[in-house]
């Protein structure tokens, strides 16, 4: 049985339909008009224990709303969620012991308390034993350097410290199912790397993870499966490997010519490839389908006829693929 199962999950928000400004607000008070906005539109999602799932999509796609539905914060307008067989909204207390949640944009630390106090309050709330608490804090400290800011008041932490502390809060009770909504947002590279290493370890230990992120490096390094959503609906659901194999069907060569490149002329000369201008006037990008031509063939014909000064090879990143998925250029 999957650890998490969502069926036809839908959330419709009611938004006040008002013009901006004071006049609009007054008119809204009189008329009370609302518009419905469907942020999550019939999502089916099933996650097996131990899976690590990346949940990606453009801004406003409905990622955070989905996480709130899956964690029981919001009541679905339609559809159902089961986490370990429970409805997380109805049985929220029992569910709370099994899940860990982090919203990168917000903190769950008590603002005026030292970090350590927040962790202790949570320890007590979740009923974590002293021995387990000690062991987990030691481990978090190894990986996240918690002790560096344990006595500091939450409101004095840097963003990176705050996120590390929040991660410890989300995991202090060793939850089986963990939801991380933008855990690396706004962090600098070194903290990001650290966090990713920590998450990889978490996944290796068997924790089930759902992670939303804008940063595709997070996804490639931590997750095996990717769910792409757009406008509240699933656009792709499958392994990252399959996504690459299926959609990364083109490769590209960057050529640096002696003089300025004449793109239309080149396109006419080599109609099998796609030609686009590069960043410099002497640079061109040649894209070809990797199942029709080998790289050797392509390079052979190009170098023989154009004798470029230099060249480099590139493969489209998963980022490009996902961007094209959003844009509706690719289908499931």
């Amino acid at each position: 049985m999957p650890i998490l199962e969502a069926q036809a999950l839908t959330k419709t928000f009611r938004r006040p339909d008002k013009d901006s400004g004071f006049k609009g607000a007054v008119r809204h008070l009189m008329q009370r008009k609302y518009k419905n906005y469907t942020a999550v539109d019939g999502i089916d999602l099933s996650i097996e224990a131990g899976e690590s799932v990346a949940y990606v999509g453009p801004n406003g796609a409905g990622k955070s709303t989905t996480v709130k539905l899956l964690t029981g914060i919001l009541r679905p307008s339609e559809g159902t969620v089961r986490v370990m067989g429970r409805d997380p909204h109805v049985e929220r207390i029992a569910n709370a012991h099994d899940i860990g949640v982090l919203f990168g944009q917000r903190t769950q630390l008590w603002w005026d308390l030292p970090v350590e106090e927040s962790l202790k309050l949570l320890k007590h709330m979740y009923g974590v034993s002293d021995a387990d608490y000690k062991r987990r804090i030691e481990r978090f400290d190894e990986l996240l350097d918690l002790n560096e800011f344990m006595p500091a008041l939450a409101r004095t932490l840097s963003l990176g410290q705050r996120m590390r502390a929040d991660l410890a809060c989300a995991l202090i009770h060793d939850p089986k199912m963990v939801y991380l909504d933008e855990p690396t947002i706004g962090l600098d590279i070194s903290v990001k790397d650290r966090l990713r290493a920590f998450l990889r370890e978490l996944v290796n230990d068997g924790t089930t993870l759902l992670l939303t992120s804008h940063d595709l490096a997070d996804i490639e390094e931590v997750c095996e499966r990717i769910v792409v959503i757009d406008k509240g609906a699933v656009a792709y659901d499958g392994s990252i490997e399959r996504l690459k194999a299926h959609y990364i069907t083109t490769k590209a060569v960057n050529l640096y010519l002696e003089g300025a490149a004449n793109v239309p002329e080149l396109a006419e000369k080599f109609p099998d490839y796609e030609w686009t201008a590069g960043e410099a006037p002497s640079e061109v990008v040649v894209t070809y389908e990797s199942n029709r031509f080998t790289t050797a063939e392509v390079l052979g014909s190009l170098t023989a006829q154009l004798s470029p000064r230099d060249l480099s090879l590139s493969e489209p990143s998963i980022e490009d693929v996902i961007r094209r998925l959003y844009a509706g250029e690719l289908t499931k």
Partner: peptide
């Protein structure tokens, strides 16, 4: 501000 969110996810 949505600050009720985390509190719903805790067992209290």
């Amino acid at each position: 501000k949505g600050d009720i969110d985390y509190r719903i996810t805790r067992p209290a």
